[in-house]
Amino acid sequence: MAVLIKRYNLAHENARLPHARLHDLRHIHATTLLIAGTSVHVVAARLGHADPSITLRVYAHVIKSAEASAAETFAKAIGQ
């Protein structure tokens, strides 16, 4: 991973990538899916979690913000 980032940064001086671990990319992947509304069960399966409760514990903060967003969307839809 570090080699790929270094190679990219050498070729793109004006658009450098920060250091990232493979685990960071895994977290971004799961977070993006959850924010987009993907089912926790689907995300858990993609991450290889044996039980969706693991995913719920790790990403509780993401799920709570998505719930707040859903509530705002619903309120707008009913004219509140």
Results as ranks from 00 to 15, higher is better:
Gln80Asn: 15
Ser69Gln: 09
Val62Gln: 00
Ala75Leu: 07
Ala75Asp: 06
Ser69Pro: 00
Ser69Glu: 12
Thr55Met: 02
Phe74Val: 05
Ala68Asp: 14
Asp51Thr: 05
Leu56Phe: 01
Glu72Asn: 10
Lys76Pro: 01
Val62Glu: 01
Asp51Tyr: 11
Ala66His: 06
Leu56Ile: 15
Asp51Ile: 01
Val62Ser: 03
Ala77Asp: 05
Pro52Asp: 01
His61Asn: 11
Tyr59Cys: 01
Leu47Cys: 10
Ile54Leu: 10
Lys76Ile: 07
Ala50Pro: 10
Ala60Tyr: 00
Glu67Ile: 12
Thr55Ala: 05
Gln80Trp: 13
Gly48Asn: 05
Glu67Pro: 00
Ser65Asn: 06
Glu72Asp: 10
Val58Ala: 13
Tyr59Trp: 09
Thr55Arg: 10
Phe74His: 12
Ala50Arg: 13
Ala77Phe: 06
Ile78Thr: 07
Ile63Glu: 09
Ile78Cys: 06
Ile54Arg: 11
Ala71Ser: 08
Phe74Gly: 04
Gln80Arg: 15
Ser53Cys: 13
Thr73Ile: 04
Val62Gly: 04
Ser69Trp: 05
Phe74Ile: 12
Ala50Met: 12
His49Gln: 12
Lys64Met: 11
His61Lys: 13
Lys76Ala: 12
Ala71Asn: 11
Ala77His: 09
Val62Trp: 00
Ser69Lys: 09
Pro52Leu: 02
Gly48Leu: 00
Ile63Thr: 00
Lys76Trp: 06
Val62Asp: 05
Ile54Trp: 02
Leu47Met: 13
Ala50Cys: 10
Val58Phe: 10
Tyr59His: 07
Ser65Arg: 15
Thr73Arg: 07
Gly79Arg: 11
Ile78Ser: 05
Ala75Tyr: 02
Pro52Met: 00
Leu56Ala: 09
Ala68Tyr: 01
Leu47Lys: 04
Ala70Lys: 08
Leu47Trp: 01
Gln80Pro: 01
Leu56Pro: 03
Ala77Thr: 06
Thr55Glu: 03
Tyr59Phe: 09
Ser53Glu: 12
Asp51Gln: 06
Ala50Asn: 08
His49Asp: 09
Asp51Gly: 10
His49Asn: 10
Pro52Tyr: 03
Ala50Phe: 01
Gly79Tyr: 05
Arg57Asn: 04
Val58Gln: 11
Ala68Gly: 14
Lys76Asp: 08
Leu47Asn: 03
Arg57Ile: 10
Thr73Cys: 04
Gln80Ala: 13
Lys76Arg: 12
His61Ser: 02
Gly48Thr: 00
Ala66Tyr: 05
Lys64Gln: 15
Gly79Ser: 09
Gln80Lys: 15
Ile78Phe: 00
Ala60His: 08
Asp51Cys: 12
Ile78His: 02
Asp51Arg: 07
Ala68Arg: 14
Val62Tyr: 08
Glu67Asp: 14
Leu56Met: 15
His49Lys: 01
Ala71Asp: 08
Tyr59Gly: 06
Arg57Gly: 05
Leu56Ser: 12
Ser53Ile: 08
Ile54Val: 15
Ala75Phe: 02
His61Trp: 02
